[in-house]
Computed example of a mutant assay.
Amino acid sequence: MTALGFLYPGHSGEDDYPRIEQLLGSDIRVDLVHTDIGEDAHRVDALREMGSTGRLAAGMEQLRLSGAETVVWACTSGSFVYGWEGAQEQVRALARLAGMPASSTSFAFVHAARELGVRRVAVGATYPQDVAGLFADFLRVGGLEVVAQRSSGIVTAAEVGTWGEEEVLTLARAADAAEAQAVLLPDTALHTVAYLRLLEKALSKPVLTANQVSVWEGLRLADRRVNAPSLGTLFTREPLVQM
């Protein structure tokens, strides 16, 4: 049994995680601990506070007791708002607190794109434009080229959590560009796992979503590869996209 640990802020799209655990169909356990979200606002100051060491530390004891072997801070905006170096320090602090390998959803997107051999990406963000721009900057530092970007301007995770298939598909299609090798949807408050096959069929290219890449990152930290095509191209055994 491989036990993956996740620190997840608040309660919006967290039911994607038991769904992923079911779809993995193997000896993988997904342990989710909720952290205090503080102010629910896609604003840089609020997001930096949400990802502060103190808030992450509060959830770590419960996660350690669960027997988790790796930990991922399952929040994209609460990591990339620190910039590349700041997000690295956040992960290092998390690893020290946890006593286990650690990462965050922001780094998971970069690692997942590299896994697929993807360099040119389109971003469909639920966030306001300024916050979405910070994610694009983060990806560029990670070696990716952001060829298109779409912002939905949503201020709260609570509102994002109400989105269903139609809204998610509309966002992905609006963000896509012909030159993009993959489309990225960076918000762990967004339910996407049930729609991964539909998204990739509609766009005819890999789609990487926040909760999907978070679990993949946990598996990567645990040195596990799981073939689960229902979770998208990322969870097939061989990368399907070449640079």
Rank of each mutant, 00 (worst) to 15 (best):
R43Q: 13
D36N: 13
V30Y: 00
E21H: 02
V33K: 07
D36K: 09
E39W: 06
G25E: 14
L24M: 04
I28W: 02
D31E: 09
Y17C: 06
I20S: 00
T35L: 12
I37C: 06
T35C: 09
A41K: 12
I20R: 00
E39G: 06
I20V: 13
H34F: 12
S26R: 12
I28A: 04
I37Q: 09
D27Q: 10
R48L: 14
H34I: 09
E14W: 07
Q22A: 15
I37A: 07
E21V: 00
V33I: 15
S26K: 07
L47G: 09
R19N: 00
V44D: 13
Q22V: 04
H34R: 15
S26C: 14
P18I: 01
V33T: 13
V33M: 10
G13F: 07
G38M: 09
I28F: 01
E21T: 03
H34Y: 05
R43V: 11
H34Q: 13
D27S: 11
R19L: 15
S26H: 05
D45E: 15
D31G: 02
L24K: 05
H42I: 03
D31P: 00
L23W: 06
D16I: 02
R48D: 10
I28Y: 00
I28M: 11
G25P: 00
V44M: 13
D36E: 15
S26F: 04
Q22T: 14
L24W: 04
D27T: 04
P18W: 01
D40H: 08
I37R: 08
A46Q: 12
A41C: 10
D36W: 11
D15Y: 01
H42L: 12
I28D: 00
V33P: 04
H34T: 12
R19T: 11
T35V: 14
V44A: 10
